[in-house]
Design a protein around this nucleic acid. Structure first.
Length: 405
RNA sequence: GGGGAGGUUCCAGAGUGGCCAAAUGGGCCAGACUGUAAAUCUGGUGGCACUGCCUUCGGGGGUUCGAAUCCCUCUCUCCCCA
């Protein structure tokens, strides 16, 4: 296997900086590329992800796409899995104390995490490091030394902390440690460039400072735009407004179709490879068509082109043409069917179409449940053992064909 | 260490002895409408084989015919003073 060609020139410089919001310092990047060329080595480009929730979303995909480009330029992606930092909880962009995760929870999240990241970057060529590697080895003394590099005043300058002070929200001392930990990761891996969301700027800069203190060349800090979620707030799994990388293709497509028209341009730019002139043409045509294309691109990004095309067909069929989906899962009722039949509310609960029989009752009474295409408004209606598959439909998105054992 | 203010249903936040399964807003779910899972409007939003019953208002104990509301205690958070 021959060594990959590494790109150090103007093209690399520009591609690295493309889409970045903060560039601290772009000039240093130039010098850093030259230096790396002389030393015949790739730049070490860091990106950190805390396995603090189990799922990545398309907001993360902006960074991951960027990192893939960096890999294509031949530079080294160093992916930090923040298993130690996840136990602290990043206070960035948070107006509340984050729950501290246990080691066990972090371990669980970690597995799905790297799998998801692998959809978008080549992990086999990346260096994946857990930061517990060095933090577990630290003694309290080391922690104190690290903590002395930062002042309370500087920490309190941060908006998020200010707001919390104003709102009488608690701030844990450990939260002050977070930026230092993230910064220390940069020292440990001798980072050349660190990427993060715009909310990460402070943390990234701490990395610079710590590197300087430790006699390393300070990293270049580049931030990427954060993307808003379906409701306009910052996209976050915990707000429930995210398109997750684990969402089924139909959901990725459908959620994208629900985006506000105004944000389409940004999504096209940050999340697709559609060239600028083509994007322009799409956006000046019909919104519906443009958004369908966007949805297809996003779905393709997560699940591949084939799945994306199928998702688009499904969407058109179900939501535009108001027809039944092409494929409806056949579900076998798990228990023996009672001789006297089964009240609808109980059936829906048992099928997992409602969380409780009360909720099922509400769904039925609200007109959201159809049996064989007929709206059924009586939650007490007894459903007899189906002899042929019974089409059960809850809302616009949940369908199944039910058979008895 | 001392003093004060608080902890309410997914979230914010009303409620200070019965009319409280708990206002209002957000979120979420469903319905109508639509190019769309957008926007808007409507309804719903503890559980139960449900016209009734059961369990909720930080934990535990108590007063009372009756407590989210009163008392005791524990616990957590915030503020002020030291």
């Amino acid at each position: 296997m021959s060594a990959r060609e590494i790109e150090y020139g103007k093209e690399a410089f520009e591609r690295i900086l493309a889409c970045c919001v903060d560039r601290i310092e772009a000039g240093e990047l130039r010098a850093r590329l030259d230096q790396a060329r002389q030393e015949q080595r790739p730049l070490r480009v860091k990106f950190g992800m805390d396995p603090s929730s189990a799922d990545l979303h398309v907001g993360h995909a902006i960074a991951l796409r960027k990192l893939r480009q960096i890999q294509e330029l031949g530079h080294k992606l160093v992916l930090i899995v923040g298993d130690s930092t996840a136990m602290v909880g990043d206070p960035s962009g948070r107006n509340k104390l984050r729950p501290q995760l246990t080691r066990q929870e972090v371990e669980q999240n970690l597995v799905t995490y790297t799998d998801q990241a692998a959809k978008l970057v080549d992990l086999s060529r990346a260096e994946v490091r857990r930061n517990s590697e060095w933090f577990d080895a630290m003694r309290f003394e080391d922690v104190l030394r690290l903590a002395s590099k930062m002042t309370v005043a500087r920490m309190l300058e941060r908006d998020t902390f200010q707001k919390r002070v104003q709102d009488n929200e608690p701030i844990g001392i450990h939260e002050f440690l977070y930026p230092l930990m993230q910064g220390w990761d940069s020292v440990e891996i001798r980072c050349d460039i660190e990427f993060g969301g715009t909310d990460q700027l402070f943390n990234l800069l701490v990395g610079r400072e710590l590197q300087r203190v430790q006699g390393q060349l300070p990293q270049v800090c580049l931030t990427l735009p954060l993307i808003n979620g379906l409701d306009g707030r910052k996209m976050s799994k915990s707000y429930g407004n995210a398109i997750l990388l684990t969402d089924a293709p139909n959901d990725v497509f459908g959620k994208t179709m629900g985006l506000k028209d105004e944000v389409m341009a940004v999504w096209f730019e940050l999340l697709t490879d559609v060239p600028a002139d083509e994007r322009q043409a799409l956006l000046s045509g019909g919104f519906r068509e443009a958004k369908a294309r966007l949805a297809e691109e996003i779905t393709s990004l997560v699940h591949g082109r084939e799945a994306a095309v199928a998702a688009r067909q499904h969407f058109d069929r179900v939501f535009r043409d108001r027809e039944l989906p092409a494929e409806i899962p056949l579900v076998e009722y798990a228990h023996p069917w009672p001789a006297g039949g089964l009240p609808l509310s109980i059936l829906l609960r048992e099928l997992g179409l409602a969380e409780s029989s009360s909720q099922a009752r509400r769904l039925v009474e609200g007109g959201g449940v159809k049996l064989d295409g007929e709206i059924c408004r009586d939650a007490n209606q007894v459903v007899l053992r189906p002899t042929i598959p019974l089409l059960v439909q809850v809302g616009k998105r949940r369908y199944l064909r039910l058979v008895a054992k």
